[in-house]
Design a protein around this nucleic acid. Sequence first.
DNA 1: TTGAAAGCGGTACCAG
DNA 2: CTGGTACCGCTTTCAA
Lengths: 331, 331
Amino acid sequence: MNLEQVARRAKVSTATVSRVLNNASVVKTSTRARVLKAIEELKYHPNLHARNLAGGKSRTIGMILSNMENPFFFDIYQTVEKDAHAAGFEVVVANTNYRSEQLVASIRLMIGRRVAGLAVVVSEMDPALMDELTDSKIPVVFYDVGAPRRNITNIRVNYRRGIDKIIDYLYSLGHRRLAFIGHHATLGPINERVKTVLDAASRYPDLDIRTAADDDTLDGGRLAARALLSGTHPTAILCVNDVMAVGALRELRERGLRVPQDISVTGFDNVKLAEFCYPALTTVHIPRDRIGHLICESLLAKSEHTEVADHEMVIDPELVLRDSTGPAPAR
Amino acid sequence: MNLEQVARRAKVSTATVSRVLNNASVVKTSTRARVLKAIEELKYHPNLHARNLAGGKSRTIGMILSNMENPFFFDIYQTVEKDAHAAGFEVVVANTNYRSEQLVASIRLMIGRRVAGLAVVVSEMDPALMDELTDSKIPVVFYDVGAPRRNITNIRVNYRRGIDKIIDYLYSLGHRRLAFIGHHATLGPINERVKTVLDAASRYPDLDIRTAADDDTLDGGRLAARALLSGTHPTAILCVNDVMAVGALRELRERGLRVPQDISVTGFDNVKLAEFCYPALTTVHIPRDRIGHLICESLLAKSEHTEVADHEMVIDPELVLRDSTGPAPAR
DNA sequence: TTGAAAGCGGTACCAG
DNA sequence: CTGGTACCGCTTTCAA
């Protein structure tokens, strides 16, 4: 089923059919009606590949995420998609699961699709890939990773500030033995995240801090907590995100450790689940909707050739106090 | 950057470049090397649209879901994608958020993309759309909705059995005043789901049951529970899925109602979160991985023209007992 | 307002 | 083993 068949049935040329499909206003009303009727009768659906090929431009923006299962990433995706739809764009996503080979494959795929713009929201990033992307001429926005370059906008959160706030707060509650739960990610900002935490903690000479890492999942959080609990346990556990914190919560519960009486726990991101788990998590709010808006705005502007400074935007996160933290237990 | 430029640089024809791209074994090693080098140097990425157009076949399968945010849908997506990748296919997803206009748009989009197969895992379904799909000649698999047709496989779960198990169990614990929390979805199996529940409950003449509905989210579950709690409250709340159950749990907690001492709660699906929330949910296990495998298997088989009976597969779910249910409180 | 025809970037068949 | 070339389905001048 193609343009030509529709054209034949409506007794017009393919050019005219194409015009009504793209509602060029030049078509005479009666002609348009005939074409529409033919399309309807033939149940014709234009081939988007052909359309893209001929048109040169793509109307779809790509998005690559480290872990869509984690609401942090998913929320960003949701708002990007909503904004994109509002602007008449489609969104196609790819999940890397923190695997850099998957990142490579996804980026190649997106370039192959000639997307109108690409949002890269991942923790793993290879400089060589950056080049590949830059050379592709595709408008790109990074979240969290990489440095600003030509044609690339960078949005990031000031993690250090967030971590500082958590640690200050915990310290003020009397906690001196801390632990940090991260997730596996050999490259990029996660290790950097660990470093950030260690660094932030080192501001207090009498603060002790250990770390553990596992998958970025509920189970991963649980396992990491388990690893941390052998021997004398910390009085507070900082988690790299809310999902892992909920996982940790379960391990503590099953060991009979009360939160926050026996041990405090903090999350990061402030996803919806942080309010619904028990106890509700003290966490740091990362405005995912704002990040999503920024991403979309930047991408759409670029794809329309509207000039936009390729600046780096940095977001300052806020502490959210709930029920998973309390005074350090007396020893 | 296109085939021709690569061909020119490698001093071969576009046909040859195409051959090495698709590793046709006929190319002489030295020639292949030259081409590969040119590709590398030019950072050439084949245009997938052109490839699809020329090749006619698509190597990507489409997937339409009602609510990717709900792990039930997401888990199915994950396993489909894994299987698809293993078979060399890409997956492109679309989220309808239970909006049937969005379903229409998504289906059109998938047809336009000429996907090699389409998995439709939604609660809302319009018969007219089914025709549109059927006419498109695209291999389709439905989960849960619609009836078997030519070219369409149907996978479904025997909800009635699952509900029966829950109600029997609750009844045996002495519960007589029940409530059911569903989610908004005017069309299709959700209302059908409500009917199923009412029907199952009617087997016990002394069983009283009320219903409430809201969005399929944590907040929705909470709101629905709130609506149910005015006046004399039920002794047990059945939820249409685990996510809404976790939402309900929160409302109960904030009202000072203990689960399961004061009130029992059940979920459905048995997503990971059901184990990690507090208290852990009694629920019904729906094997999402199996569903995902079936979907992919069926789609790939069809797209390879391997003959596969378009049968309807039905899955029998099992009850999973955890901590959110207990004996009905004495009055 | 409409039609003819030249691409868009590949694939695949036919010769050589 | 390699090159020439006719499409794939649609958009977009250019003329009429």
